[in-house]
Design a protein around this nucleic acid. Sequence first.
DNA 1: TAAAAAAGAATGAACATTCATTTTTTTATA
DNA 2: TATAAAAAAATGAATGTTCATTCTTTTTTA
Lengths: 194, 194
Amino acid sequence: MAKLQKSIDKKNALIKATIELVNNNGFHATPMSKIAKMANVSPATIYLYFENKQDLVNQTYIEVKAAYTKYAFATYNKNMSIEDGFKLIWKRIADFKLKECENAMFLAQCDNTPMIDEPSRKEGIKHLQPLLDLWSRGKNEGVIKPLSDYLLYAYSINPLSFLMITQKRGDFQLNKTHLEEAYQSAWNSIKVHS
Amino acid sequence: MAKLQKSIDKKNALIKATIELVNNNGFHATPMSKIAKMANVSPATIYLYFENKQDLVNQTYIEVKAAYTKYAFATYNKNMSIEDGFKLIWKRIADFKLKECENAMFLAQCDNTPMIDEPSRKEGIKHLQPLLDLWSRGKNEGVIKPLSDYLLYAYSINPLSFLMITQKRGDFQLNKTHLEEAYQSAWNSIKVHS
DNA sequence: TAAAAAAGAATGAACATTCATTTTTTTATA
DNA sequence: TATAAAAAAATGAATGTTCATTCTTTTTTA
């Protein structure tokens, strides 16, 4: 196997281990030694790929955030109508949060704690730009309510995070009907009613 | 001062310090020694009031959750109409999350991490019962959509958590109009449209 | 003056990070 | 192509620090 590929594999194994262990135990209760063990690597090796523990978790966050938004926007293009575009993105986000639950849980934990440093958090936010652009276009066309992006996000996207967590905890089992319902609620909250 | 009162004061000081330090640094980065210092107490004294660090954070969680729901339901009574009752509770929750931001941040962090142990989390959920009862009544009367409580919560209450966090981070400044708007969005998402 | 509460210092374990070696890979040479 | 020297990557063990918790002594309260 090529040298580069092997490096990438090792880095990915470390990132994967970090996600799983931090999800289950929290940042404070996952020692580097355990991350190393789960990735089949010596603790010292981690420091060939990452500066320190903080850097490891920052990079993991950015990596996962990038994968998340890549998935969310994969089939979207700017020529779609506002409604179609939003529906597509919303459903892809829902998909990701439910299928790639481990990753989504990790993001939720990062977004609600001081685990990640501020620059990395800022970096992560940038990835959401296409959705903000869609909203901006929608507002101009009078299709989307003229509200702050934060409000639009709170009404339409954020509820998915809560559902994902309850789902993961086994409190509640989401099905297709729920999801369709949730989408309608989201769209209804942000669209201009004619 | 009476002995009992003094004990309570000390315990409260410890809880307050825990909230502030955990909010700013996360559970993993707040040593008992710092909590003790902030509460003007010896580290050893913490162990007169709490079994260990986990117990301290569990109790803090339950305490804050209780204060939160006490505030939320303070002026509510079961004879109100569904709509009035919901409006009242929603607005009190919003109030709490924005005014008692430190406390709300702490709850958000607990609810999105494995910081708290499962029994304490379960204990915390119980406090929300009056809202669930209101919804149950509303569903019976055909005023509230016949959806799982988790969905109702996701649509109507959860967006407030996100807004509180962006507010706290200084990303976005909520005003009265936003709040009224947000309430309408919440009610619209859960009420039966006639 | 006895009991309870609190304190500060001590203890020992856990952990992030580094160090000295070893193993693997690459490069240069025949 | 085969071999050996050099470089790079990886390792396990060591280091020094931090921290939760406990122990012994002192202070406060009854």
